[in-house]
Design a protein around this nucleic acid. Structure first.
Length: 693
DNA sequence: CAGCTATAG
DNA sequence: ATTTCTATAGCTG
């Protein structure tokens, strides 16, 4: 069995997907903060609810989303920790993501405590002919061998996948102290479902050809991702109460009720067929906070809530580093109507100049911006609530969205153009690689990772007109909403540049004359500018997990040998030898290091990726103008911009060559989109320098 | 695009 | 039944 044949999308079992599910995540995070909690029944409280709890509490019958009162009845000794502020959970979630991300760029977050990873490529690089691979963890169904019923090679891929899952779980544990379950299969649906068969802290692979039966075994419609309450109810109305019945359902009536798309998709899912790719998660599109509260009916109280939310939000946005250009308020009215989830939202665009960048790649509020924002917020609030009449607000939320791109790296074209404007977007020199979460310098980190996601074009509606600097931002906050962006003037701009190109070098070389609003940048565009460099050969550039010296996993408490988990006759021999009840620092450092999977050097990185970062210095005359680029325009560009364009162009070529035999998954598509830039792509900076035919 | 609904965890 | 605090995608006017 060779790689090409199973890498092809046509092979049903071609991919290898791992789903990770953290064991009672919030509770784990709290136990790491205070290890004395491990032995006690622990519930994480949000308002009147236990949103999750540890296994000790579950022994008493406490469950997720149980009322506090009920939990106390079942377990009077339960320790409750307030978990309304998700900061710690979010941070841990990000660290987990980063670790998984070292193994493959194809990582998709599902909430804070779950991740999908497409390790198809990694499996291929680890594939050795004539060498059998042992499966790590459980096999489902039990008493079956992986090799049964299918000869496409999927048994071996799954076995390798299970070893990767094992390694990743091991690393999560030794570096973060976090345990999780993992499911391994050839698509997301099955990986997720099979991962939940053995819990907690276990991993399970699914026998490929058992999929259809497995789905009937699950049989619960709600456990199929995509079928929520409404759809389930709708299906039930039509006589479909479980997966088996969905499998046997009449597709035509299904289409009538659900529409073609969802009908066919659900039917496929019912058989365990899911072609949904693992879509790499990028930076969030919105950053928001909300607070359910006892009914508020006074404007002043509302404003106070908003102020607190806003200050917390600013902190998050500051760390994120991108500048938001829209804000949204979310409100839930107590309307005696028991529509539980009737939220109303209003949003408005805001000026980017409310924020300024500091040299650390973070952003802060400009002078007086907080007050202005609050004004805008209260205006939006009054668009929802008529202050003349009595009102009751039971939930208040705020969210920033439409983030502007903050490029990292000094050589970006975008930064070059922006820096010359009078905008305070300084910090061109700050090569802040927007880290944030993990400190690990070893981290494999394609800098494009956070910018790869498909995102709707969000033009930068900046109204900073250099000719009219008098337009104060306060004008806007008074007007609350910002003028809607005009149509792109780029074609005009280009035309102008072309006219001037022969004699007015200055106009081109001095972008300060460009108005930033002329740049129809969106996140997609900048993404390309960024994504050029570290791509070169994906299949060779994955690091094998470092035989991590386990230098000093701060505050990690694990113990290799002590008591075995609750008498679990672990068939899962490879599972974490961890004792969640272990005393933290009483461990001797030597003994507390779990044995690492002995990593041979043979599959370590031998191919050196071509550093496309290298700038072409020196004689530009030797460098051909990229094909399709207007030579005269090109020559008049500043040297570093020329360099960047050439690098861009080169790596496109390299990628195209490299890409010939690569597969179809979504993540590699950033390469192909680059290569096809001359084709369909609009709005790319690169494209702006292309010759109009 | 703005606002709402559905979905998931 | 329904709860909390997020985040994303898709539908509609």
């Amino acid at each position: 069995m060779d790689f090409e044949s199973f890498t092809s999308q046509k092979e049903p079992h071609a991919r290898t997907i791992i789903h990770f599910d953290m064991d009672c995540f919030y509770a784990q995070v709290e136990e790491l903060r205070d290890v004395s909690l491990r032995t006690k029944p622990l519930g994480i409280q949000q308002k009147q609810i236990v949103v999750t709890c540890n296994y000790v509490a579950r022994q008493y019958g406490v469950t997720k989303l149980m009322l506090i009162s009920e939990a106390k009845k079942l377990c009077p000794n339960i320790v409750l920790v307030n978990g309304e502020d998700l900061t710690n959970y979010r941070q841990m979630s990000n660290k987990i993501f980063e670790i998984v991300h070292k193994y493959t760029p194809l990582v998709e977050k599902m909430g804070f405590d779950e991740d999908f990873a497409d390790v198809t490529e990694l499996v291929a690089t680890r594939w050795k002919d004539n060498i059998d691979v042992e499966v790590e963890g459980y096999i489902h169904p039990v008493d079956h061998e992986l090799t049964e019923h299918c000869d496409c090679g999927c048994d071996k891929r799954l076995a390798i996948g299970s070893q990767i899952a094992k390694e990743i779980r091991q690393e999560l544990f030794v570096t973060l102290g976090i345990t999780c379950c993992a499911g391994i299969s050839y698509n997301k649906l099955l990986a997720k479902l099979v991962g939940s068969i053995n819990k907690p802290n276990k991993q399970t692979v699914l026998i490929s050809n058992y999929a259809e039966e497995f789905m009937r075994e699950i049989n619960n419609l709600h456990s199929i991702t995509g079928i929520g309450q409404k759809t389930e109810a709708l299906l039930l109305e039509n006589g479909i109460a479980n997966v088996t019945e969905l499998q046997n359902s009449d597709i035509d009536m299904l289409k009538k009720k659900l529409g073609f798309e969802t009908a066919t998709k659900l039917k496929e899912l019912s058989f365990g067929r899911d072609i949904g790719p693992v879509r790499p998660t990028g930076k969030p599109k919105t950053i928001g906070l909300e607070d359910a509260c006892r009914p508020i009916s006074v404007k002043k109280d509302v404003e106070e809530k908003f102020r607190m939310l806003l200050m917390r939000l600013i902190e998050q946005v500051s760390e994120d580093g991108r500048i938001p250009i829209a804000i949204k308020v979310v409100l839930r009215k107590f309307d005696s109507a028991k529509k539980t989830s009737h939220r109303e939202t209003k949003q408005a665009n805001i000026l980017p100049s409310l924020f300024k960048s500091n040299s650390n790649g973070q952003i802060t509020l400009a002078e007086g911006a907080l007050g202005k924002l609050l004004k805008i917020i209260m205006r939006l609030f009054e668009r929802v609530v008529d202050l003349e009449k009595p009102f009751n607000i039971t939930l208040i939320g705020l969210a920033f969205s439409k983030f502007q791109q903050r490029k990292t790296g000094s050589s970006s074209i975008a930064n070059y153009l922006i820096k010359k404007t009078d905008l305070e977007v300084q910090s061109v020199t700050s090569i802040t690689s927007d880290e944030g979460f993990l400190s690990s310098p070893q981290t494999f980190r394609p800098s494009d990772q956070f910018y790869r996601r498909r995102t709707t074009a969000s033009p930068i509606p900046m109204n900073v007109d250099l000719e009219a600097p008098s337009s104060d931002i306060s004008d806007f906050s008074e007007n609350e909403v910002e003028p809607s962006p005009k149509k792109s003037r780029f074609s005009l701009l280009i035309a102008k540049r072309r006219c001037l190109s022969s004699n007015d070098v200055n106009d081109i070389a001095s972008p300060s004359k460009l108005r930033v609003c002329d740049l129809r940048l969106n996140s997609r565009d900048s993404e390309k500018d960024i994504s050029m460099s570290p791509i070169s050969s994906p299949s060779t550039s994955f690091p094998v997990p470092p035989p991590s010296k386990c230098s000093s996993p701060q505050n990690i408490n694990y113990s290799p040998t002590s008591s075995v988990n609750g008498g679990d006759e672990s068939r899962d021999i490879g599972d974490m030898v961890c004792d969640p009840i272990a005393a933290p620092k009483s461990q001797e450092p030597n003994t507390s290091i779990p044995q690492q999977p002995s990593q041979t050097n043979e599959d370590s990185l031998t191919t050196t990726a071509v550093s496309t970062q290298t700038t072409i210095s020196g004689n530009l005359a030797n460098i051909p103008c990229p094909s399709g680029v207007d030579q005269s325009v090109f020559n008049e560009l500043p040297l570093d911009v020329q360099n960047e364009l050439i690098n861009t162009w080169r790596s496109s070529m390299a990628a195209k060559a490299n890409n010939l035999n690569t597969n179809t998954t979504a993540a590699t598509s950033n390469i192909s989109t680059n290569t096809s830039m001359a084709g369909g792509q609009k709005n790319t900076l690169y494209r702006y320098f292309l010759r109009n035919k």
